[in-house]
Amino acid sequence: MASEIPIIDSHIHVYPEAELNTLAWYTEDSLIGGRRSVEEFKSASASASSQVQGFVFLEADRKNDSSQSWTGPLAEIAWLRRIATGQPREGEGHTAEDAKLCLGIIPWAPMNLGAAKLEEYLAQAEKEAGPETWKKVKGFRYLLQDKPNGTALSDDFIDGLRLLGKKGFVFDVGIDQHRRGRVQLEEVVEMIDRAHDGVPEEEKVVFILNHLCKPDLTVVNHLSDTGFNAWRTAMFTLSKCKQTYMKLSGCFAEMPDSLKVRPAEDIFMALFPWLAIVLASFGSSRIMFASDWPVCTVGVDGAWEKWKKVVERTCYMATISDEDQKMLWAGTARKAYRLDAEEE
């Protein structure tokens, strides 16, 4: 049955080689530089091509000068428009037929500037996207993992989150407990509470947590590790909010290099303490499969297929039913991102 379950990869990045210099993280020696296109993604996931129904694109961190310049982020939306409407330029690595694979788009947004500026940006983003592509824009992300402490708790940021909720958009949460510590976990808990406080149920913004919130997967004795205990507590706290979902992804980037090269079975065993907590806290109906391609490929051969095997092993060991597996592999992404909803 598992081999027949549809898959939606709820977290991939694509970017054309011609626009590499607009990416904030790009350097000439970057291991994920070069063209990263739908064609390359299809090749990476070819072993499950009959199952993969499509993907959700996540913004790839275009330069924005602390939200003062929108040129790069808007160029990214224009790039996604070419994919979503099947109008490739020569050498971009996608075809007209690939448009059906682009199920959802999560661009960048200047959440730190407050509701008024966010409204202004959304208007420009909608114009850049065009009606057909705008239907696929399901939410936005503003990476918090590298921002100063307190960024997500400013009144402007909270007002921006409330605006997204009112408009029916989700917010993807990218934080990094591994490198930034427990403060990022604590701030996300407070951020969600404040964004929802006093807001009508139907206008509460949906939060989608990326990559297990990036815990430190190099920990050996997790039972006595204060970082693990803080992460575990945060998972159960965050899961109490029913508008919060978790992506099962991003683990290769947080584990030691020696583990990355091991078989999927060994990786599953090493990750079991973290995977068990996520399953226990969020349950399969609020967890979604994601690869974090192409970031997952750094130091990992056959990364997409290897991660798929880790998740399959997780489902088997947790005795997750076929119906619940359908949610984890695709249904949760459809629900959280409202991938089947038509815009009015």
Results as ranks from 00 to 15, higher is better:
residue 1 M to G: 14
residue 6 P to C: 13
residue 8 I to V: 14
residue 8 I to C: 07
residue 13 H to R: 02
residue 15 Y to H: 01
residue 23 L to Y: 06
residue 25 W to A: 07
residue 26 Y to L: 07
residue 28 E to M: 07
residue 29 D to P: 04
residue 29 D to F: 01
residue 29 D to I: 03
residue 30 S to E: 03
residue 30 S to R: 04
residue 35 R to S: 15
residue 36 R to P: 08
residue 36 R to F: 01
residue 37 S to R: 11
residue 39 E to K: 10
residue 39 E to L: 09
residue 41 F to S: 02
residue 43 S to Y: 09
residue 45 S to I: 09
residue 46 A to F: 07
residue 46 A to I: 09
residue 50 S to F: 09
residue 53 Q to V: 08
residue 55 F to P: 03
residue 55 F to R: 01
residue 60 A to T: 13
residue 64 N to S: 13
residue 66 S to V: 09
residue 67 S to L: 00
residue 69 S to C: 08
residue 69 S to D: 15
residue 72 G to W: 10
residue 72 G to V: 06
residue 73 P to S: 10
residue 76 E to D: 14
residue 76 E to G: 13
residue 77 I to V: 13
residue 77 I to K: 02
residue 83 I to H: 13
residue 83 I to F: 06
residue 84 A to I: 02
residue 95 T to V: 10
residue 97 E to L: 05
residue 98 D to S: 06
residue 101 L to S: 12
residue 107 P to Q: 05
residue 111 M to E: 11
residue 112 N to R: 12
residue 114 G to C: 05
residue 115 A to E: 13
residue 116 A to D: 14
residue 117 K to D: 14
residue 119 E to H: 15
residue 120 E to T: 13
residue 124 Q to W: 10
residue 124 Q to D: 13
residue 124 Q to S: 14
residue 125 A to Y: 07
residue 126 E to T: 09
residue 127 K to W: 04
residue 134 W to Y: 13
residue 134 W to E: 07
residue 140 F to M: 03
residue 143 L to R: 06
residue 145 Q to M: 11
residue 147 K to A: 13
residue 151 T to L: 00
residue 154 S to E: 00
residue 158 I to C: 06
residue 163 L to R: 07
residue 177 Q to I: 04
residue 178 H to F: 09
residue 179 R to I: 00
residue 184 Q to V: 11
residue 188 V to H: 04
residue 193 D to M: 08
residue 194 R to V: 10
residue 195 A to F: 01
residue 209 L to C: 12
residue 210 N to R: 04
residue 214 K to R: 10
residue 215 P to N: 06
residue 218 T to Y: 04
residue 220 V to T: 15
residue 222 H to D: 02
residue 224 S to R: 12
residue 225 D to R: 10
residue 225 D to E: 06
residue 227 G to L: 06
residue 228 F to P: 06
residue 232 R to C: 11
residue 232 R to D: 11
residue 235 M to G: 04
residue 238 L to K: 02
residue 241 C to W: 12
residue 243 Q to F: 03
residue 243 Q to L: 05
residue 245 Y to L: 10
residue 245 Y to D: 09
residue 245 Y to C: 12
residue 248 L to G: 05
residue 248 L to T: 10
residue 256 P to D: 07
residue 257 D to S: 15
residue 273 P to Y: 05
residue 274 W to V: 00
residue 276 A to L: 00
residue 280 A to H: 06
residue 281 S to N: 00
residue 281 S to F: 00
residue 286 R to P: 02
residue 286 R to T: 01
residue 286 R to S: 04
residue 288 M to C: 04
residue 288 M to Y: 08
residue 292 D to P: 01
residue 293 W to K: 02
residue 295 V to E: 00
residue 296 C to H: 04
residue 297 T to R: 03
residue 298 V to M: 08
residue 301 D to G: 15
residue 313 R to Y: 09
residue 318 A to T: 09
residue 320 I to H: 03
residue 323 E to P: 07
residue 324 D to Q: 10
residue 327 M to K: 12
residue 334 R to E: 10
residue 344 E to F: 13
